[in-house]
């Protein structure tokens, strides 16, 4: 696997030289491999949103470098427009950014701006609508008649239609019900699998992050606290809790069992895995006794 995103001493200060000066991102060095499904967690104000806005050049760092596919995105030879096509960014509550009068036109906005032929635009719209589970007849409807969850999917499809190699989403499932969350997360995963893309997503739901990601980036005070696999990250329960985060409920219960002397081996952070480990434990102890 090769590195697709790399930052080098990335620092960003808001309102530089004013009384409101605030360093939101401090000396961040990360390397994200191709194909990763990376969750970004951190409490409000930890720098998550500021960091991701650097990755497609919406914000220019105060100091440091960002490399996408090995290219320094602020190098004079690099066109930032190309970077924005390569790195798609979906903001929080993207359904508020929908403006066209049909779902088709809204999803087509991005690829059209990229200069593709009508046929290609059509192919991309249909394919991304399919990925997010929108029926073909929905494409002709006004996006404003749709439910909140459907509108959210239209907005996400609009970015997917640009077929970015790197898809970044800021809290894509905030405010949705459990099934809606599950669906959108599965669709994001599908995009990544179909397009061999890399996905970064910010979430406040530790349970979602635990189930859906391959790696987790933990931000704290503008810096990187750690970047590791879910079991390794959620193995640091007390540190996460101290910084205002949490571990999934199931992990908290398993930690209490551990404290009471019952050691189910392995770091447990999903319900299915917990059930499996409990059964294994019972089997082992039954055969012993």
């Amino acid at each position: 696997m090769s590195t697709v995103i790399k930052t080098e001493n990335l620092t960003y200060t808001y309102g530089l030289g004013t009384p409101f000066e605030k360093t939101a991102v401090k000396d961040v060095n990360i390397e994200i491999e191709e194909g990763e499904l990376c969750g970004i967690i951190g409490h409000t104000g930890s720098g998550k949103s500021t960091l991701i806005q650097h990755l497609n050049g919406l914000i220019k760092p105060t100091s440091g470098h960002i490399y996408i596919d090995g290219l320094d995105i602020w190098d004079k030879a690099v066109k930032i427009r190309d970077i924005r096509f390569k790195v798609g960014l979906v903001f929080q509550y993207p359904e508020y950014q929908i403006f066209e009068d049909t779902v088709f036109k809204d999803i087509a906005f991005g690829p059209k701006n990229m200069g593709f032929s009508e046929d290609e635009v059509k192919r991309r719209v249909e394919e991304s609508a399919e990925i997010v589970g929108l029926k073909p007849e929905t494409l002709l409807r006004s996006p404003f008649e749709l439910s909140g969850g459907q509108k959210r999917r239209v907005a996400i499809a609009g970015v997917m239609a640009m077929e970015p190699k790197i898809l970044i989403l800021d809290e894509p499932v905030a405010g949705l019900d459990p099934k809606g969350r599950e669906k959108i997360l599965a669709q994001i995963k599908r995009y990544r699998d179909q397009k061999n893309a890399t996905v970064l997503l910010i979430s406040h739901s530790m349970e979602d992050v635990a189930r859906f990601t391959t790696k987790i980036l933990v931000m704290e005070g503008g810096g990187v606290f750690c970047y590791d696999t879910p079991p390794k990250v959620f193995g640091r329960a007390s540190e996460l809790t101290a910084m205002g985060l949490a571990v999934p409920q199931i992990t908290r219960v398993m930690n209490r069992l551990k404290a009471a002397g019952i050691e189910l081996d392995g770091d447990i952070y999903t319900v299915e895995y917990a059930a499996k480990k409990i059964n294994e434990y019972l089997l082992k102890h039954k055969s012993e006794s």
Binding site: K179, I250, V271, A275
Partner: peptide, 19 residues
């Protein structure tokens, strides 16, 4: 389209598995 707390789901799965 709803869910249950993770601990409830765990108990439910274990129960389904015969515990």
């Amino acid at each position: 389209g709803l869910d249950v707390p993770q601990v409830t789901e765990l108990m439910f799965i274990l129960h389904e598995q015969g515990l």
